[in-house]
Design a protein around this nucleic acid. Structure first.
Lengths: 324, 324
DNA sequence: TTGAAAGCGCTAACAT
DNA sequence: ATGTTAGCGCTTTCAA
C-alpha cells in the first residue's frame, strides 16, 4: 500500500504538504492541492489510520461492551449506536462479555490497550471500583457508578405503568419475572415501581428472578412453568423484558393458558419482535433509538472534554397491543 | 498512560529489553524479566496496541460487514464470530451497511484505512469487481466472487428439503417468498432446489420476492397479505428466512388462516426465535455456529498466508417443529 | 544477555 | 505557501 511518502515523491512535494491537503489545514495553493489529489487517486492512496491515531493520540474508535449481541435488545441498540457513531466518524469495536467477569475485565483492558477514545458499557459484572478507576470517557446503561454518566429508561415509571394497566384490567393475582436483579441495578427500579403501585391497591405480587445464565433459556421455561404450576391463579404478569415475555407466552401456550383471556401479559423494551409475534405483545417501550443516540452524543462530548449530565433518564411509554 | 519508555527507565533497562519481555522474545535474565514485570504492574502499564500495529503491520482487527446487526440472523452470527475471533486474538470492527452501496463502499475503505487484517463480508451490494480488487484477506457469505473464498449453507439442498416436506404433507398449492434475489446470489439456489423438486411432482409454485428494503417490514406484511388474497388456495409456503416466516405467521393469523392446519409453513435459518414463537417454526437449519467458526478460521488462515478452499458449503438440516 | 538506532506512517511545531 | 524536523510508542536488526 502506498504511503504518504509515495504520494509526496510522486507529486514532487514533501509529506508535510500532503498531510496538509489530507487534513485541509494551513495554506496550500490550489495547484499543488490538485496535483496531490490527482496523485492520491492515481496511487489509490488511503491514509493509514493507525499511524494517524498514533500521532494524533486519538483513535476514533469506541468500545461497546454488552452481554451478547445475540440478544435482540442489544442487537437493536448496537445497530443504532453504530449508526450514530459512524455519522460522527467513530468506529465500533464489538465486545460480548457474556456477563462473564473475566471476559468483561479482559475486554476493558483490551479496549484500553487499543486506546479507544471512549467506551459504552451495557454490561456490568465487575465491582464499581473497577469502572471508576478507568479514568477515561465511559458511559453506562442502567447502572449508576459514582461520577460516570449513565443512561437509563425511567424504570420506576415503567413498573408503575405496568402495574396500573394490570390493575385496570382487573388482575388480582399478579406476578413479576425479572432477569438477574443483582446485575441490573437500575433495572431493579422497575420492580420497585411495580411493587409500590400494587401495594397501594393492597396487592402483593409473586416475584421470581431468573438465574444469571441468560444464555440457558431452557432454564427460563422450567422456572416459568413451575411458577404457573405452583400458582395457577396468576392472572397478570409483568416480565422485565420482551424476550422473557415471549418465553412466558410459550409456556402459557403449552399449558393451555390463554393470553390475554386467562392471563394478561406485559413485557418491557419494545424490541421489534414485540409487534411481530402473535398475539402482539403489550409492553413498556424504552426509546431505544433515542437512548442510543444519546449514548453516542454523551461519549462524544466526554471525549471532547465537555461536561455532560450524570443522570440521563429517558421516559418510557406504555404500548398497548394484544396481550393485556 | 505510561509508555514503554517509562517502564524502561523505572526498571533501569532500555526499551528494547522491555519489548523483549513483553513479547517473550530473545534471551533475558530471569532477574530483569522479574523486575520489568514488577514495574509494569506498578505502573499499570498496558502496551499501546496502536503503536504495535503500526510497527508490526498487523492490527489484529477484523472487519465484519453485514446488512444490519438488528437482524437476528446476523446478530447471532456476529455473536459467534466475535467469540471465535476473540479466542484467536482478533477484535471485531462492526459495520452495518444497511444494504446501501454507498455505505458499504465507505466501510470497505474505512476498513482498509484502518488496516484490518481481514474482512468478513455478509453484505454484497457492490459489483463483483469492487471486491476482487481488494487484494487482501476477505471471505464472503453466500456470494461467489471469482477467487474469494466463500461460505454458504447448502442452499439447493435446503430448497429440496422444504419442497419435499411440503409435498409429503400433501400441499398442492405452494408458494415461496424470498428476500431480494438480486442481492443474495447464492441464496437463489434455495429457490432452484425448491422449484426442481416441485416440478418433479408436476407442481408449480407461486414465487414472490420482497423488495430491497429489508428495513421496511410493513411492506412485507402488505405483500404477504396480497398474496393470500390473490391466492386463497395456498396451502404450503416456504419462506427464505425465519423472519419472513414470522411475518407470514402474523398475516395468517390476522387473516384467520390456521397454521399448520390450513397452511403449512417452513422457514430458513433456524434462528433462536424459531423455537421461541408459537407455534414453533419448522425450518431449514443453517449451522450458524459452525459457519461462523469456519469464517474466522478461514480468514485467519488467509491472513497467515495459508491456502483455503474456495468453496465452503455446509450442510443444512430440516428441523421439524409445529408449523408444517 | 542487553543496548543503540532505525523505522512503521503520520502530525505538527517551527522555520523559511 | 512549503519544507525541516522531531516526535507518537512500539519492534527489530545489528552490535557489543
Amino acid at each position: 500500500m502506498p504511503t504518504i511518502k509515495d504520494v509526496a515523491e510522486k507529486a514532487g512535494v514533501t509529506v508535510t504538504t500532503v498531510s496538509r491537503v489530507l487534513n485541509n489545514r494551513g495554506y496550500i495553493s490550489q495547484e499543488t492541492r490538485d496535483k496531490v489529489y490527482r496523485v492520491m487517486d492515481e496511487l489509490q492512496y488511503r491514509p493509514n489510520e493507525i499511524a494517524r491515531s498514533l500521532s494524533r493520540k486519538r483513535s476514533m474508535m469506541l468500545g461497546l461492551i454488552i452481554p451478547t449481541i445475540a440478544h435482540p435488545f442489544f442487537a437493536e441498540m448496537a445497530n443504532y449506536i453504530e449508526n450514530y457513531a459512524f455519522a460522527l466518524g467513530y468506529k465500533i469495536l464489538l465486545c460480548n462479555s457474556r456477563l462473564d467477569r473475566v471476559k468483561e475485565k479482559e475486554y476493558i483492558n483490551m479496549l484500553k490497550s487499543h486506546r479507544v477514545d471512549g467506551m459504552i458499557m451495557g454490561s456490568h459484572t465487575l465491582d464499581v471500583q473497577e469502572y471508576v478507576k478507568l479514568r477515561q470517557p465511559v458511559i453506562t446503561f442502567d447502572r449508576q457508578i459514582t461520577d460516570i454518566p449513565y443512561i437509563s429508561s425511567d424504570n420506576y415509571q415503567g413498573g408503575v405503568l405496568a402495574a396500573q394497566l394490570l390493575i385496570d384490567r382487573g388482575c388480582r393475582r399478579i406476578a413479576h419475572i425479572s432477569g438477574n436483579l443483582s446485575l441490573d441495578v437500575l433495572g431493579n427500579r422497575r420492580l420497585e415501581g411495580f411493587l409500590d403501585t400494587l401495594r397501594k391497591h393492597a396487592l402483593e405480587p409473586i416475584v421470581i428472578e431468573l438465574g444469571t445464565d441468560v444464555f440457558e433459556s431452557s432454564g427460563y421455561d422450567r422456572m416459568i412453568r413451575s411458577l404457573f404450576e405452583k400458582e395457577p391463579e396468576v392472572d397478570g404478569l409483568f416480565a422485565s423484558s420482551d424476550i422473557i415475555a415471549l418465553h412466558v407466552m410459550k409456556v402459557c401456550s403449552s399449558l393451555g393458558i390463554k393470553v390475554p383471556d386467562r392471563m394478561k401479559l406485559i413485557g418491557y423494551d419494545d424490541i421489534s419482535l414485540a409487534s411481530l409475534v402473535e398475539p402482539e405483545l403489550t409492553t413498556i417501550r424504552q426509546p431505544l433509538e433515542a437512548m442510543s443516540r444519546l449514548a453516542v452524543d454523551l461519549i462524544d462530548k466526554l471525549i471532547r472534554g465537555e461536561k455532560v449530565p450524570l443522570e440521563n433518564i429517558v421516559p418510557v411509554t406504555l404500548v398497548e397491543r394484544k396481550t393485556c
